[in-house]
Write a protein that binds this DNA or RNA. Structure first.
Lengths: 129, 129
DNA sequence: AGTTTTGTTATACATATAATAGAACAGGTT
DNA sequence: AACCTGTTCTATTATATGTATAACAAAACT
């Protein structure tokens, strides 16, 4: 897992961490059962505060991507990541909506937007090599 | 233009306003040259502060979707919305990326994600009737 | 048994963003 | 002349973000 945090991003660094861990899961560099660094070790490694890492971990736990075991550590959900529920699907749709709308405003076609999606998936998977 | 603002959303209300204006543009209920309400009138209509509407307007002006004419008012960019530049395309890609990654984690396929995009576009366009 | 490591909790502080409020200004419209 | 426009200014409140220490209890390691 190579994590790169941009300090000057408008995206909060705890969310950047969340997103990059999710990307690690998507590309397969993180697998079910894998353990993640302790909040202190990760914080020192990334040059951020322990509480910031903790915030990211709890965010990921709420999404059921990781399991936080008291006094032990943090692991990727072992029983396999669940399939998208109807609620997940709807939430993702709501998140995609404003971006798709903006793309349409910039005169992109449905096919061009789908191509973006394809490119993103390619990018995500090729980095796992 | 029917605007609905959710007070309890985690999305700031000035951004909700931005997004719904962009959706109006995407679906065609707002056309190039159309004028938007004054900051005071819109604020009163939506039950929010003048400065909040102003913030949304300036956000949209930076994106070049509207033109703010001093002492006159606000209009949708008349010379037609520009086509997506390479920079726009890249920015949209970066915004889509974390959502697509999460969808992949929830075991959605590329086709399922593309279907989401299709549904969103259908939703956007059917509301223009 | 003792030390280290784990996530947790509590307090405190600094900064930025979001949102509201009221007032005043200058230029355009009616 | 009255009104409406976006702008600017000052102020206040609330929330989000991020850091900094410190202490706690239980698991793990030696």
């Amino acid at each position: 897992m190579f994590i790169e945090i941009e300090a000057n991003s408008s995206v909060p660094i705890y969310l950047q961490l969340v997103q990059q861990i999710i990307e690690g899961l998507a590309k397969g560099s993180l697998k079910p059962g894998d353990s993640l660094p302790s909040v202190r070790a990760f914080a020192a490694d990334l040059g951020m505060n322990m509480h910031t890492v903790n915030k990211a971990y709890h965010y990921l736990e709420e999404k059921e991507f990781i399991r936080i075991v008291q006094k032990k550590g943090v692991v990727i959900h072992a029983k396999g990541i669940r399939e998208a529920s109807a609620a997940d699907r709807n939430r993702l749709k709501q998140e995609l909506r404003p971006i798709v709308a903006e793309a349409l405003c910039l005169q992109m076609s449905q096919e061009e937007i789908k191509l973006l999606v394809k490119e993103i998936i390619t990018d995500l998977k090729e980095k796992s090599l």
